[in-house]
Design a protein around this nucleic acid. Structure first.
Length: 257
DNA sequence: AACCCGGCCAACCGCGGCAGT
DNA sequence: TACTGCCGCGGTTGGCCGGGT
């Protein structure tokens, strides 16, 4: 990832009016201030952070800078093949819900993934679909329909990656805000009940907001009703099956007699 | 060397939702 | 209930960079 040139801070800095908030690229001094403040005081109200850290930035700008660049648990460098495949797979399920996709890729930000998708993957997939004839193409994981692609070919990659990410998350000193690093029993189904940012909304078309934290989806294994319904249907079909067998046997006995 | 152009990426903007009053 | 402030998200923009001509 390219860093902003420290020698050329192309900002809209208004040095004449100190009340004006800075915009544009962050200078190394600003980064240092924000980093120092966040490491000593932790997260809080972003507008207060901007003030207390001595930054002439709006809270929003500080938040973005911290999340996308300064956070210590960020992974730098190019996306691995596994990450690429996972992004493609998750995008096929979740669509442009970048924050939810980012929550499945520890150390990656939604902005990073969004940019990567728009600049690289989108084009590559487009080329692949236009030249989609080769079945041996290893990069053939173009976006799938949710109906047909919940567990596509590359599922094992995605699953192992998620599990790896879970196990490695314990070493992260400062978990990102929101989601991402909590244990998720169903990483790809996205029904993590601890997910405050939407959880199963992507799949189940539930409202995508933080309310999900208080109101988890109804039809999940976490709900006793889920198991009652399963048991009801299971035994219903079972008894029907037994009944059919029994009546069939009776008829045969009649024929024999 | 100068210019053009497309890719990439950091940052901004607008919107929607939540929480507090 | 209405208003306000804040947060988080997704879309968009602006500018740097490198390759091509």
């Amino acid at each position: 990832m390219r860093k902003p040139d420290p020698n050329m801070p192309k900002t809209n800095t208004n040095t004449t009016n100190k009340m004006k908030l800075r915009k544009g690229l962050w200078s190394p001094e600003e980064d240092e201030k924000l980093m120092k403040y966040m490491l000593t005081n932790g997260q809080g109200c972003w507008s207060d952070i901007a003030k207390n850290a001595g930054l002439q930035r709006c809270g929003k700008s500080c938040r973005l800078r911290w999340i996308n660049y300064l956070r210590p648990d960020l992974k730098r460098g190019a996306f691995s093949l596994q990450e690429e495949e996972l992004i493609i797979h998750l995008h096929s399920i979740l669509g442009n819900r970048w924050s939810q996709i980012a929550a499945r890729l520890p150390g990656r930000t939604d902005n990073e993934i969004k940019n990567f998708w728009n600049s690289t993957l989108k084009k590559r997939l487009k080329n692949n679909t236009s030249t989609s004839s080769s079945p041996n193409n290893s990069d053939s994981s173009e976006p799938r329909d949710v109906v047909g692609g919940i567990f596509p070919l590359h599922e094992h990659h995605a699953m192992t990656f998620c599990m790896d990410s879970i196990s490695s998350s314990s070493t992260i000193s400062m978990p990102p805000m929101g989601t991402g690093n909590q244990f998720d029993p169903f990483p790809l189904l996205n029904i993590n009940r601890y997910d405050k940012t939407g959880g199963a909304a992507g799949l189940l078309d539930l409202p995508t907001h933080r309310k999900f934290w208080a109101e988890p989806p109804f039809f999940t294994p976490f709900n006793p009703c889920y198991w009652l319904i399963i048991i009801f249907f299971f035994f219903g079909f079972y008894f029907q099956f037994v009944l059919v067998l029994y009546t069939g046997a009776c008829i045969n006995w009649d024929v024999v007699e």
